[in-house]
Structure formats: C-alpha cells, structure tokens
Amino acid sequence: MQTTGISYSETSVRGRSRPSSFRQRFKHSASWLKGVAVALTLGSLLSGCGVVNHMIYKTTGDVMQGFSRDHTIPYLMASGDLAMGCAMSEATAPLLMSFGRVTNEPDQLAVMLYLSAGGCAEEQGREHELAALAAMYERKGNAAEDAIIRQKRAYSLAAKRYLKGWQHHNTYYGEPGTGECPDFDDDMDEFIYFAGLLAGLQALNSEIQSTSSIGVPKNVGSVVARASSCLESDKWWGAPMALKATVWAMIPGAQPEGEDAFERLAMTDRMGDEAGVRLSHVFHAIAATNKGDEAMVKSVVRQHAESLKEQPANEDWAFVDAMATNMIIAISDRLWVENTGHRTPLGRLGTFWDDQKAEVETMDLDGLL
C-alpha cells in the first residue's frame, strides 16, 4: 500500500528514524533552557557585585569624608593659598558631594566646599565691578554696562553656592538662632559652624548685589547674629562678635540698647591683630561702607596694612587671614578705581591717592651768603 501526503526524511532504518523538524525543536528547547540557566547565574552574580560595589562605594565615601574633614581642610587652612583653595573647591565639590548617594550626606564638608566655591564666584563679581568702575571713570558707557551685567551674573552664582552651604549647615547643626547651641566635638566642628554662618550672611549679601531673587531668607542676618553667640569671640579672633556687630550696624533696629556696633568692631579688630587672623577688619570695613563713612573705611584699610607688617599670620589659620587681606585689598581697589581709574598700586596697600603731599624743593640759602 502506498502512503501519500506525508514525506519523511529518515536518517536510519527499522523504526529508529525521527523527523528532522522534531530534532530541531529539541535542540532549540535545549538551547533555550541553557540560556535561561546562564542568565539566572549571571543575574545572581551581578546582583552580588552590585551589593559589593555599594559596600565599596559607601566605605570609600566614609573614608573620603573623614579624611577631608580631619586632614584636607586643616591642611588648606594652614596653606594661605586662596587660588588653590578656590580651584580645589570648584573641582572636587561634585565628586565629594556625590558620595551622599551611597552613604550619609557630607553636610559638614559641603559647608566648606560651597563657602569656598561661593567665594570664587564672588571674586569674579568683584573683578567685573572694578572693570565697570574703570569704564565709568573713562566714560565708556557700553563697556561699563556690560561689566555690570557680568558682575550681577557672578553674584547670582555666588548667592546660589553660599545658600547651599547655609542649607547644609542647618541640616547638620539644626536651625540656628533658636536659643539652643549645638554640642561641638572639637575646634574644627566649631570652625565649620562659624563658616556656615558666614555662608548664610554672604548668601544674602550676594543676592542683594545680583539684584535678583535667589531664595535667600531675608531674616538670615538676624539669625546669624543670634547664632554667633554660640561661639567664643576670644577663641576665634574676635570674629563672632565682629559678625554680630556688623549686623547691628547694617540692620535698622538690630542694635541692642546700650551697645555701640563700631566700638565693638574696634575692640574685635585688636583681637584679630593680636591673633594674626584679621577677619574682623573685613566686617568693620563692610559696616563702614554701608554707613557711607569713607574716612572710616580708609582707616580700617590702613590698620590692616600696618598689622600685616607687625604681626605674621597665624600658622594654623593662614588661609582665613589671607582671605581677609584679599577682601581688604578689594575694598581698597574699589576706592582707588573710583577716584583714579586704576587699582591699589603694588606694595601700597594702606595708602591712598590723596595721601601724597606736593614735595616742596628747599634751597640752602646759607650757602649763597
């Protein structure tokens, strides 16, 4: 009997033959099962690697945070190199802050990074301001306007960075100025607390300079003034009291009855001179500028220049003293550019364009007799 309609391709005889399609399906099923097994094995291994990697990242983050706080910051504070500190903060902030994704948020470190990075942007703003003043002195209106625009942009960036430092400060230490002071672990803990207060005050000042709204709380000045009471002025070169007195001088009604902001500033200036950390001079000059007292501003600049000759910078806090000098030079430069069109001449910090007296030639008349 002839069978039709079905065609087999046999590979053997006597009933042991199998259709080729069956064999292909079997091979396909075996390959699929093998692939699933490999996938499951790799998934398990990769899952384990993910856990291991997370542990490595967390450990690295904790080590980096601890090392930066205990060694990098103290090393930088003793260096006195402002440009290097500026470059370091801008370059490493994204790296160090990213460890907050795998371990605790580095709030303390963030205070220092954003305070320094904010100072970088503020320095650019001051440079643009000097360019604007020089252009106005030479009656170059378009150049002056362009420099003012660049100045406001730089101050806007500075305000954003300072504000981040202030926010991290509040996250770590709690809301400042509430009447309760934090329990500090060591001197560096206190210094970072003070740095956070500076960040808050600078955020407000930079926002004002930028003439734009960054979101800085408008009561930050009074909050900082109250929070500065948590620090001993005798220990910190008079700076906490100077900060508070500056707020008194700048905010109407902030000065307590019986207090005199400028007497306090004169006192803290002497403390800073003796300690070799002259940050109080900056606060004093800012308060005098806000008052519109140019004679007082000049006096503070002269005092700072004289102190630099008489008292070397504190070895542990040379960076802070250098920062104060840099800001005093900026204040001096502003006065010089406004009145002469150029900055403070090299080596003449503490002198001014109107100090020079006309030299009168004298003749020895006795020799003619």
Rank of each mutant, 00 (worst) to 15 (best):
A154F: 07
A132K: 02
Q167R: 13
A143M: 13
G221I: 01
W237E: 07
A143W: 08
D146H: 09
G179S: 09
N170R: 15
S213P: 06
L157W: 05
A245I: 05
M241G: 15
A225N: 12
S228G: 08
S156V: 01
F191C: 03
L163R: 11
K218D: 11
K235N: 03
A203C: 04
G174E: 07
D146V: 12
I208R: 15
A239Q: 08
R126N: 07
W236Y: 07
L157E: 12
R150C: 09
G196C: 00
H128Q: 08
M250Y: 00
F184G: 09
R126E: 13
K140R: 15
C181Y: 03
H128T: 04
A225R: 06
A131C: 10
E190V: 02
V223T: 12
G200A: 08
T178A: 07
Y155R: 00
P176K: 10
A131Y: 05
A147R: 03
E232G: 05
P176L: 13
W237M: 07
L157K: 11
K160P: 00
V247L: 05
G179T: 09
D187A: 12
I148K: 12
I214N: 08
D183Y: 10
P240K: 05
E127F: 07
T171C: 14
R150L: 13
L163M: 13
F194K: 03
P182E: 01
Y137I: 05
N219T: 11
E127I: 02
S156M: 09
K244N: 10
G238Q: 02
Q167W: 09
I214Q: 03
S222W: 05
E129S: 07
K160C: 09
V223D: 05
I251W: 03
Q124D: 12
A131N: 07
F184K: 12
M188G: 13
L197D: 01
M241A: 13
I192R: 10
Y155L: 00
E145F: 14
S233Q: 02
A225E: 10
